[in-house]
Amino acid sequence: MKLNQDGLCEDCEIIKRIKAKPAPTSKDINVLQMTRAKIHGNDLVEATCVGYHCAECSKYINRVYSQSGRDSRFPKLPEYVKEHSDHCKITLYPFTYGVSIMTNIYTMKRLTDKQVIEYSNRPYTDSRPQKWKDGYRRLEAKANNKAYCQEEYQAICQKLPDIAPKSQAGYTRMKKADSDSFKKIAEAAHQAGIIIHSFENEE
């Protein structure tokens, strides 16, 4: 156990600092999980993500990694997972080979110990089924629509206060329905130099 200059367990202090945060990020939680694994003498961690995720994150999830890189059965934990886990909420869990259970998140089938090794060493490509790709596209569409509507509504309120809807929610509903009232506002917005983005399909 490594001690700091005050004679305290460094890993224990890391856990204490993260637990004290009012709103720890996914990256914080993963540091916590990796540290807990090390304290218990476990070098392996499983990377998973239960929600819809992007093509890049899909390359790294549903694998078991060796934190140190010394376990030749598994790939070394990539920097991408450590640095970008907040993007799609990649989560790490301590993993004990032969004891822990790993499930393929796309098929929900339990993997044998041999399959865990094979699946963890598969090529780093986007392996999402179409259903998962469509799900992530819908999430992106909703996020984009929300951001664009907020930006547009604020600009309309500032430059065209006389025709601005009473609320952003009202503006969003008008835009989604592509109502005649929205078309009039959009035309005036274009003339005022306000960019109006297309409403993306959320279905």
Rank of each mutant, 00 (worst) to 15 (best):
M1P: 07
M1T: 12
K2L: 13
N4V: 13
Q5A: 04
Q5D: 02
D6A: 06
G7P: 02
L8N: 07
C12R: 02
I15V: 14
I18A: 07
I18V: 04
I18Y: 05
I18F: 05
A20Q: 04
P22H: 09
P22I: 10
P22L: 10
P24D: 03
T25W: 03
S26C: 05
D28G: 01
I29W: 05
I29R: 07
V31M: 14
L32R: 12
T35I: 00
T35W: 02
R36H: 14
R36Q: 15
H40F: 14
G41F: 12
G41Q: 05
N42P: 14
V45A: 03
E46M: 06
E46G: 09
A47P: 00
A47I: 05
C49K: 14
C49E: 13
E56A: 12
S58E: 08
Y60S: 07
R63V: 01
R63H: 07
R63Q: 04
S68R: 12
S68I: 12
R70S: 07
R70M: 06
F74C: 14
F74K: 12
L77H: 00
L77I: 02
E79W: 09
Y80D: 03
Y80F: 11
V81D: 12
E83H: 09
E83M: 12
D86P: 04
H87A: 11
C88R: 00
C88K: 00
K89H: 11
Y93L: 11
P94Y: 06
P94H: 10
T96F: 05
G98K: 07
M102G: 13
I105G: 09
I117N: 00
Y119C: 11
S120Q: 01
R122Y: 05
P123K: 11
P123A: 10
S127A: 09
R128M: 11
K131P: 03
R137S: 15
R138D: 08
L139C: 03
L139F: 05
K142A: 09
K142F: 04
K142I: 09
A143G: 04
N145M: 02
A147W: 06
A147H: 08
Y148C: 06
C149R: 11
E151D: 15
I156Y: 08
C157D: 03
C157R: 13
Q158V: 07
D162W: 11
D162T: 11
I163K: 00
A164C: 15
A164E: 10
K166I: 12
S167I: 15
Q168D: 09
A169T: 15
G170Y: 01
T172H: 15
M174K: 13
K175M: 03
K175S: 11
A177Y: 00
A177F: 01
A177Q: 05
A177P: 04
D178V: 00
S181T: 00
F182E: 01
I185Q: 06
I185T: 01
A186D: 06
A188P: 15
Q191M: 10
A192M: 08
G193Y: 08
H197E: 10
H197F: 12
S198P: 14
S198M: 13
E200V: 08
E200T: 08
N201L: 05
E202Q: 04
E203G: 06
